[in-house]
């Protein structure tokens, strides 16, 4: 580029470069951007008023409410777990640590359907626990507790997976110094560790939340699909789709797509602003 005849020996020629860039852009446009675009064009194909009346449907509203409720329980639960797990794993050396990390990763490689199925087997009518809990007034499967449990299972590793490498990278020096200066464990955590990991933590929570609100397979198995009662947004998308209510299905889907976009925008902002405070190893 700079010189017609000089070819940088450790880079490709300009045409190759641009061919690769275009190939990547085309690939992403086809598989990622086009579906996103279609969500919005389908949602708005009958205009704004059809879109908003679809979202104002009582069943859609209760699906949105349930989704928020489930995320509001599942995300803090996994946030606390993530903090505890990363503290134990990153600040101490013990045998079996690698195995523990593998176990924490497990939900990533288990099919969502299985994540739901295990709770049906555990709490369903022909299980041991189900009838017992039911007789004490707690319905798990086909009710909100089952949906929450399945969501926690699926989003289990997100916060921990974000924090462990970050805290490992930061080492234990700061905390040791704080403690040698007389801080207790909570103080070391609140005043030393937390400020160091807050952006990584926020990022993990964002991802965890996006998945919690968008989970379909696991929740589908435990929900019972009762409109207005145990239908989360992704399940409601499916129901509307099966009702041939295309605008409704894509309208609800568009809210979830917006959430995904928002998550990514925040992620990008976090990365540009606080890149050094975020772990470089974002595996999941």
């Amino acid at each position: 580029m700079r010189n017609e005849h000089f070819r940088n020996p450790i880079s490709e020629t300009a045409p190759v470069r641009w061919a690769l860039i275009l190939a990547v852009l085309a690939f992403l446009a086809l598989f990622v951007l086009l579906p996103l675009l279609v969500v919005f064009t389908q949602a708005f194909r009958e205009g704004w008023s059809a879109y908003f009346s679809a979202l104002g449907e009582p069943d859609a509203v209760s699906a949105i409410r349930l989704t928020l409720l489930v995320a509001a329980i599942a995300v803090p639960a996994n946030l606390i777990f993530g903090l505890a797990a990363s503290w134990a794993i990153a600040k101490f050396d013990f045998k079996g640590k690698a195995f523990l990390i593998t176990l924490i990763d497990l939900p990533f490689s288990v099919s969502p359907v299985i994540s739901g199925l295990v709770y049906v087997l555990l709490f369903g009518a022909n299980s041991v626990l189900g009838p017992f809990l039911k007789s004490h007034g707690l319905q798990v499967v086909f009710a909100v507790p089952g949906i929450v449990l399945a969501t926690i299972f699926v989003t289990f590793p997100f916060v921990a997976r974000e924090l462990i490498p970050l805290m490992q990278e930061q080492g234990t020096g700061d905390e040791e110094a704080a403690i040698s200066l007389g801080a207790n464990g909570w103080q070391a955590f609140w005043y030393v560790t937390l400020p160091n990991i807050k952006w990584g933590l926020l990022y993990g929570v964002l991802l965890c939340n996006a998945r919690a609100m968008g989970e379909f397979g696991a929740v589908s198995v435990v929900s019972g699909h009762i409109r207005g009662l145990t239908n989360t947004m992704p399940l409601h998308v499916e129901i509307l789709y099966n009702d041939y209510n295309i605008v409704g299905a894509f309208a609800v889907a568009s809210l979830l797509a917006l959430l995904a976009l928002l998550t990514l925008v925040l992620r990008t902002i976090l990365e540009t602003q606080y890149g050094s405070e975020l772990s470089a190893t974002q595996k999941h």
């Binding site: 409410r65 349930l66 928020l68 409720l69 509001a72 329980i73 995300v75 803090p76 946030l79 909100v144 609140w190 005043y191 937390l194 400020p195 807050k198 933590l201 926020l202 929570v205």
Partner: peptide, 23 residues
């Protein structure tokens, strides 16, 4: 830290509201 406190507060508030409206 402040962010986290706020986040947790919002989350619990959310739970409260949602439970309230469900009941």
């Amino acid at each position: 830290m402040a962010i986290i406190n706020k986040g947790l507060a919002v989350a619990f508030l959310g739970v409260g509201l949602a439970v309230g409206s469900l009941s």
